[in-house]
Simulated scan of single mutants.
Amino acid sequence: MGVALMGTAAALAITNPTLKDYQTHAGEQLVELATDEVCGQRGLPMLMRVWLKDCPAVIASQQTSLAALAGQVSSRLDLGLLSVFTTEVGGQRLLPGLRLPRYTITTVGVAGQFITVNTHSDQF
């Protein structure tokens, strides 16, 4: 039994996600959040929605930039077997006159997987 527990603990420690792993995951999550916020009914003004034919594609094209941004504004609490990542992002300009809402995202990384435990958005 002790060997099994030590083996499990070692496996968790080895698969504990890094900040770089989280950065990729956060970029995907930020694309989803930004698409919901910016491309939804309350996001873009009507004139911008008419002009911008495929808002989700425009946001998706920024995934690499959003992932890099997440890497800069995220912190990692390494607990050995798992990590807690906190990302605070927002207020960045996506298009002239359009800003990304502010977000605070708390995610647990364990066994190479990510579980978002809290997402908070401040509308402005």
Rank of each mutant, 00 (worst) to 15 (best):
T24H: 12
V84K: 15
P101R: 07
G90N: 04
A10G: 10
K20C: 03
I14D: 10
G97Y: 05
E37R: 08
T15F: 13
V73P: 01
I115P: 00
A60W: 01
L33H: 03
L100V: 05
A9Q: 09
C55I: 00
Q63G: 02
A60P: 03
C55P: 00
F85T: 08
T24F: 11
M48F: 04
Q113H: 12
E37I: 00
V117F: 06
V84E: 15
S75K: 11
I105H: 11
R99C: 07
L47D: 02
G7N: 11
P101Q: 05
V108N: 08
R99K: 12
L82W: 10
D21S: 08
T104E: 13
G80T: 12
D78W: 07
L19P: 04
Q72F: 09
V3G: 08
A34I: 09
S83R: 11
P45R: 00
R49Q: 12
F124W: 08
V50G: 02
V84W: 09
V108M: 11
G112E: 06
R42W: 03
A70N: 03
T15R: 14
G90Q: 05
L69P: 02
G43S: 01
Q62R: 11
S65N: 12
G7V: 11
Q62H: 07
K20D: 15
L44K: 02
T35Q: 04
G71C: 06
R76D: 11
D122I: 10
T15Q: 14
T8F: 15
G91Y: 06
G112S: 08
V89C: 04
L19I: 09
T15P: 04
T86M: 05
C55Q: 00
T87H: 09
A13Y: 11
T86I: 06
I105R: 09
L12C: 12
V117L: 08
V73H: 11
L12E: 05
R42T: 04
A34M: 11
Q41D: 08
V38N: 00
T107F: 08
L12F: 09
L19H: 09
T64L: 12
G97H: 04
L69D: 02
V84N: 13
K20P: 00
L69M: 10
L66Y: 05
Y22K: 06
L47K: 01
Q29C: 00
T64R: 13
V58F: 04
Q23M: 09
V3P: 03
T15E: 13
T104S: 10
E88Q: 14
V117H: 01
S61G: 15
T24I: 14
L79Y: 14
G91Q: 06
G112C: 07
A4H: 13
G80L: 08
I14Y: 15
T104R: 15
I14P: 01
